[in-house]
């Protein structure tokens, strides 16, 4: 497998995992047949030729550098959905969304021109790898499993299985960034509601 083939193969993983998850539907316990068939059908759909190119290469037209984080999170979700081990607990997912949100807010506004400072440029130097390692250490210390994903992201920053040579693209992409921001907002809202309810309950309980 040459370098270009590796890039194409890697860029196909995230769309395949995402489509497999979509085909599994919303049933938390899909049948064995559906668990096996969904990834196969997803692969078949992505290979359908459309004007000289398989569908998956049309997706690469828009996103040719899915992040390693997104790819691994999709893989973890798919493994759990098809009856494999639940690798992530709720706190691990929360860490994934929080890190994704923080990275999005640091990266996108400045990189898209909001300031004279280009945050994307940090991904060509050592600073982003050091920051990622620091977050990984913190997560390891508190026993959060998202740290293992970040270890693989750091590995990706060395080998770059994607077209991009920028370390940001190993850590985050626009899809993971948007999902993270939405998920973080939902987590904050649900936290506010739950603390509000418990606060109200406490107030009512007071004499």
């Amino acid at each position: 497998m040459n370098c270009n083939q590796l890039h194409y193969f890697y860029a196909s993983l995230a769309p395949w995992l995402a489509l497999s998850l979509l085909l599994l539907g919303r049933n938390p316990h899909p049948s064995r047949l559906r668990s096996i068939a969904s990834p196969l059908i997803a692969a078949g759909i992505l290979l359908i030729p459309l004007e000289h190119f398989p569908l998956v290469r049309w997706i690469a037209l828009l996103e040719s550098n899915p992040s390693i984080t997104l790819t691994l999170l999709l893989a973890i979700a798919l493994i759990a959905r098809v009856g494999g081990p639940r690798l992530f607990r709720s706190q691990d997912w929360r860490a994934a969304w929080l890190v994704g949100s923080m990275a999005s807010l640091v990266l996108y506004p400045a990189a898209l021109g909001l300031s004279p400072f280009d945050s994307y440029n940090l991904g060509w130097g050592p600073l982003l790898a050091i920051a990622t390692a620091a977050i990984t250490v913190v997560l390891l210390v508190i026993g959060n499993r998202f740290a293992y994903v970040l270890v693989l992201v750091l590995l990706g920053m060395i080998f770059h299985p994607m077209e991009s040579t920028n370390d940001w693209d190993c850590l985050i992409d626009a899809c993971y960034g948007i999902f993270s921001l939405i998920a973080t907002i939902l987590i904050v809202i649900s936290y506010k509601i739950s603390t509000g309810h418990s606060g109200n309950a406490r107030r009512k309980a007071l004499p």
Binding site: A129, A133, T136, V151, L154, M157, T165, N166, D167
Partner: peptide
């Protein structure tokens, strides 16, 4: 392992 990975990123570089 993390230290080795970060060292790898620093040594190899990409820009």
């Amino acid at each position: 392992i993390l230290l080795v990975l970060v060292g790898g990123v620093l040594i190899i570089g990409n820009g």
